[in-house]
Design a protein around this nucleic acid. Structure first.
Length: 730
DNA sequence: TATCAGAGAAAGATATGGCC
DNA sequence: GGCCATATCTTTCTCTGATA
């Protein structure tokens, strides 16, 4: 990501979500039965009953999910994760985000693709410094006759150049072909492999030189290139012996230093896989987008953020950034129906704002002033209430303090994050919000995706995924938000190595996927991952249902043997590599794992069952004895104390926080240092509960009641008055 | 000694498969 | 088909062992 971007509508064209009125979506079917687990209800299992979903009307047994293949329905977009909005929610009520129109940014316009997928340069996955002579998959070999082999390392062109035109791609291809030795056939063996590897290593170092903008990445690439070189030398030395497989250069990952300023290892404008810097190409991304659009209908980012729903959690597609962030946090680790129930209760309990850009959103300042116990009870339907409640309180406290600090900085004309992109009016608005006790993160509209994500992940409970969702849906900055489905398809499509985790996929996709496709691909991947029978979880090739299932439009592009996404057939990968004919698929389907001996309760209690039932191959030991970690030990002690005293743990923080010096390294490890910062926020929550912050609350509420307003005054006058008010508290 | 990767925990819901 | 036990999934945070 380079330069500033449009904060909104940069990728969306005019138009709204298309909805076919007569088609009822599965999502809609459960909307009205948002299960609200009554408080104090024991978990069904505790009573020896099967877990049942509970609604306001009482327990309702959930229909067993069917794995019957169903033709996906085109259109009718209810966006996944509750993200996005139904068409009826877009309209007059929608909040216009024109407040950010004055932010001048750079756009990256996309030109329609005129090149078919098979005509575009495809990175050759076989840039492998391996001493093994791996047989070539015949089906892939057929495909490869149409593909142009490209080594991205030697090209020296930038991402923008890569995307800019087909002509550039073609030039790239010829350059790459000229710079590479001919691709070895399967007969070329080790010598060719080594020669090819040497070339790749040289180019690896060239690439490192090109990364002048990011010295740390450059160093890392150089280091890895040398490492690969050493490995290749080892391979040369072991000719004649059984060679060790060496990691493909193309899959080598740049290590990024993690630290307080980058705790997740975001690569920020680079890819962790430099050899894949042009995978996928713009045309490949376009093609996948086109195929999925044909199947599921077009998805476009609404031009206006919809008014926040009071009974839907959503996933960030609301005007207020703070609202978006907290709704996304609530909707994590649970079903949308449960998150919706929690949001509804929040709105009922704490009220909603009636004015300003956050109009219609929950009154988060009231939540901040509320007790933790109350908040926990309110959001209980969403699950993980203690955890989420603690995070929400901590975030709100942080936001409150930061807003005050930003306002003070504006008054003193000191720099603040994103402040360089704000005009005087926006700064004055920020100051006004502090005075009016209106909690807001709307200043993040002035940040780039990188800056915003960096800011978001500072908050407890907010990880890269949550941050990326808010950036994409609320800030409306193109961002490659990666959820499980997006990650799965990126692996299956070969866009990222099989071993990539979701963060790697985010870092890579953020760099390689064209901005104008990020929103659409995110939605389409999720939709497809949920609807396509062959791409869903727990469906396997070779079964009757599989054969009767509708064809997947990405079939020719996917390799579903990559990764292990709940398909349970990972162990057969090698076999498939060796033999790709249909009999293998059938054999694979028929080769079921031997049924696991069912563990009876009695046996489980004796703890001796493992010895008797481990006969099956690859059988996992169910519930192996777990080591007791230090943390568990502490918790156990606390629980034992609790049992002895009969105290209600509900009123205490889940895990006792040892008193620590904020900002100091309290442990030997740097990770401990990170923890200190997080626990500082939790500590505030614990203190609020323990010391009864209500006294302060009353004071603050009193201050909030004093209705300071700006009326027809200049920015300078406003600032002057604000300064007085902030300093005097009046 | 500092850093990193990966495992485990958290608290739920849902999926799966054996037994009756 | 109902009951039941167990496995798996979600995302973030924390901790530990391995590595540079």
């Amino acid at each position: 990501m380079s330069g500033r971007r449009v904060t909104r509508a940069s990728t969306a064209t005019a138009g709204q979500l298309v909805r076919e009125p007569d088609v009822q979506q599965p999502d809609e079917a459960v909307e009205d039965s948002a299960p609200v687990k009554p408080q104090h209800q024991a978990h069904p299992r505790q009573k020896g009953k099967r877990a049942a979903t509970t609604t306001a009307q009482g327990p309702v047994r959930k229909k067993k999910a069917t794995s019957k293949p169903v033709a996906p329905v085109k259109g009718g977009w209810i966006l996944p994760h509750g993200m996005g909005i139904a068409v009826e929610n877009i309209g007059d009520k929608a909040a216009d985000l024109t407040t950010n129109d004055n932010i001048n940014v750079e756009t990256e316009t996309a030109k329609p693709s005129t090149v078919g997928l098979l005509d575009v340069p495809v990175i050759n996955d076989d840039i492998v410094a391996t001493a093994n002579d791996i047989p070539v998959d015949s089906s892939k070999a057929k495909q490869s006759t149409k593909k142009t082999v490209l080594n991205p390392i030697s090209t020296g062109i930038t991402r923008r150049q890569t995307r800019s035109s087909t002509a550039a791609s073609k030039e790239l291809t010829s350059t790459a072909q000229a710079s590479l030795p001919p691709k070895p056939s399967s007969k070329d063996g080790l010598a060719a492999s080594i020669e090819r590897s040497d070339t790749a290593i040289t180019e690896h170092e060239e690439l490192a030189e090109q990364l002048v903008e990011t010295p740390s990445l450059r160093r890392a690439v150089t280091r890895q290139g040398r490492k690969a070189h050493r490995t290749t030398e080892d391979a040369k030395a072991t000719v004649g012996e059984t060679p060790k497989p060496v990691v493909a250069l193309i899959d080598q990952k740049v290590k990024v230093k993690r630290g307080l300023s980058n705790k997740y290892g975001l690569t920020r404008g680079s890819t962790p896989y430099p050899h894949r810097h042009a995978i996928p190409t713009k045309d490949q991304s376009e093609e996948v987008h086109r195929l999925l659009t044909e199947m599921h209908g077009e998805v476009k980012q609404p031009t206006k953020a919809p008014a926040p729903s009071l009974d839907k959690a959503g996933c960030g597609e609301v005007p207020s950034v703070l609202d978006a962030l907290l709704r996304t946090l609530i909707s994590g680790n649970t079903l949308m129906a449960n998150a919706d129930a929690a949001v509804k209760r929040l709105a009922e309990t704490y009220g909603i704002l009636t004015e300003g850009v956050g109009a219609g959103s929950i009154n988060w300042n009231a939540v901040r002033l509320s007790s933790l116990e109350k908040l926990i009870n309110v959001i209980r339907p969403a699950g993980c209430p203690k955890l989420k409640g603690g995070h929400i309180k901590a975030i709100l406290d942080m936001v409150y303090e930061e807003q005050k600090a930003r306002a003070q900085a504006h008054l003193e004309n000191k720099p603040v994050p994103g402040g360089q992109n704000e005009d005087e009016g926006q700064k004055a608005l920020e100051i006004e919000k502090v005075i009016e006790h209106y909690l807001s993160l709307d200043h993040m509209h002035a940040m780039t995706a990188d800056e915003a994500i960096t800011e978001f992940v500072r908050y407890p409970g907010i990880g890269v995924k949550t941050a990326a969702c808010v950036v994409l849906f609320c800030l409306r900055i193109p961002c490659f938000a990666v959820d499980t489905h997006v990650h799965k398809f990126c692996v299956w499509l070969g866009w990222v190595p099989e071993k990539a985790n979701e963060l790697d996929t985010f870092n890579h996709g953020e760099f390689t996927v064209p901005d104008h496709l990020k929103y659409g691909l995110h939605q389409l991947f999720i939709r497809h991952g949920q609807q396509c029978f062959k791409c869903r979880k727990n469906t396997k090739p070779g079964t009757k249902a599989w054969e009767n299932a509708p064809e997947c439009p990405l079939e020719h592009l996917l390799d579903r043997s990559k990764g292990n996404f709940g398909r349970g057939d990972k162990e057969d990968d090698e076999e498939e590599m060796d033999d790709d004919n249909e009999s293998v698929v059938a054999k694979k389907a028929s080769k079921k794992k031997p049924a696991k001996p069912q563990r009876t309760k009695k046996k489980a209690d004796t703890g001796t069952e493992d010895d008797e039932t481990d006969a099956g191959p690859e059988k996992k030991t169910p519930n192996p004895p777990k080591r007791v970690t230090k943390r568990q030990g502490i918790k156990k002690e606390v629980n034992e104390e609790h049992d002895a005293s009969g105290e209600d743990l509900e009123t205490k923080p889940a895990v006792p926080v040892a008193p620590k010096q904020p900002g100091k390294m309290n442990g030997k490890r740097a990770t401990a240092g990170k923890a200190v910062l997080k626990k500082t926020a939790s500590k505030k929550v614990a203190e609020a509960v323990a010391t009864g912050r209500e006294v302060t609350v009353a004071d603050e509420q009193d201050a909030a009641d004093k209705n300071y307003k700006f009326v027809n005054s200049t920015v300078q006058e406003q600032k002057a008055r604000s300064k007085i008010k902030l300093e005097t508290g009046r």
